[in-house]
Simulated scan of single mutants.
Amino acid sequence: MIVNVDDHDSTRFLRTRVLTQEGYSVVEAATAAGAREFGIADDTELTLLDINLPDGSGFDVCRLLKHNRPFTPVVMVSSTHRTTQARLDGLAAGADAYLMEPVPPKQLVGIIRGFLGHVAEDEGHESGWVVTDPGGTIEAASRGMERVLNLTIRSLAGRRLTDYFEDRDASAALLRGGVAGQGSLRTMRVRPRERAAFSAIVQTSAITVPGDTLNHVRWAFTVEGRWRRSPRATSVN
């Protein structure tokens, strides 16, 4: 679920329409209170956050969201705070990206896909994201990864993501690149638990974590085509 926060009804409506047409599930909020409520929900995978809200600052909301869920992306969008300093303030508050209006729909979708992957279910896609530490251990994952790897989110925590790729050398190279701050996009063969391997588009990007000198890495997966899968992921100890 994407949380779309903006106090201007028309702007919020247009963003929601663009994202729902791409297959994303969107919930809207027009206030800082709504952003805080939905932004920390368990099924929230990304928050689009305006800065000027009637009951608070988007910068403050961003800090709170990143404190509670440090690996859930926050993309700040503003039509008024368009200076370099404002962008730096947004990134300092924890934003994963800072966009200045007007943002063309194609650019917005590209940013979202970079974090979450493509999720158009009617086109037969599955997608999800994982965050690993510099050593490749899974720290956080989206609900979509339960379908991609056939494991519950709780089961994924603490496992090495590179173990789920056929080409471990290539996945290790992606990890090293992400830690070094170099994003990448390539097709990889993924080996889910108790299912046949399949091809997925994997996009990596670096995440800066306060107090850690090395970058953590976000991995966005997009799987084209459906496969036979169990009704739900299972927990493995």
Rank of each mutant, 00 (worst) to 15 (best):
T213Q: 12
D122N: 08
V130Y: 05
R147G: 02
D122K: 02
S57D: 05
A41P: 00
W219E: 04
A86S: 14
R176T: 14
N68I: 08
H67N: 08
E37R: 15
E45Y: 03
E224Q: 13
T11C: 10
T162I: 14
A172P: 00
S78C: 03
E194S: 10
L65K: 01
F221K: 05
S127Y: 04
D163N: 13
T84E: 11
G90W: 08
G183D: 11
C62M: 03
T16F: 07
E45F: 02
R176Q: 15
R193V: 14
P134Q: 08
V18K: 07
V217W: 05
A170L: 13
L91M: 13
V74F: 06
I51P: 01
R191F: 07
R218I: 07
V179G: 08
A41C: 07
E123R: 13
G23V: 10
A32D: 11
V61L: 00
R195E: 11
G177A: 15
D89E: 13
S199K: 13
S235Q: 08
M188T: 09
R226C: 07
A200W: 00
P70Q: 00
T83A: 02
E45A: 14
M188P: 01
Y98D: 01
L116Q: 04
T47C: 03
R189V: 10
S230W: 08
L149R: 09
T20I: 14
I2K: 14
R82K: 14
L99G: 03
S199W: 01
L49A: 02
H8K: 14
W129K: 00
S184I: 05
P105Q: 05
L46S: 02
V190Y: 07
V202M: 04
F221S: 03
T11E: 13
P192L: 13
R82M: 08
A170I: 09
M188S: 09
A206E: 06
I153R: 15
T137A: 03
V18L: 12
G225M: 02
S79Q: 12
R186C: 11
L64F: 12
L174Q: 12
V131C: 05
G117S: 04
S171K: 13
R195Q: 10
T137D: 00
W219C: 02
E121A: 13
R113C: 07
I207T: 03
R87P: 00
S235I: 05
G58W: 06
Q107G: 00
R226A: 07
G144R: 00
L156H: 01
G23D: 13
R154H: 11
V77E: 02
R191N: 09
T80R: 10
D167G: 11
D169M: 15
F198R: 10
R154K: 11
G144K: 01
L88R: 11
R154F: 06
Q182A: 15
A32R: 10
D55T: 05
M76L: 03
L49Q: 03
A172N: 15
R168K: 15
V202C: 01
G39D: 07
R176G: 09
G178R: 06
W219V: 04
V190D: 05
Q85K: 09
V109S: 08
A157H: 14
G39K: 08
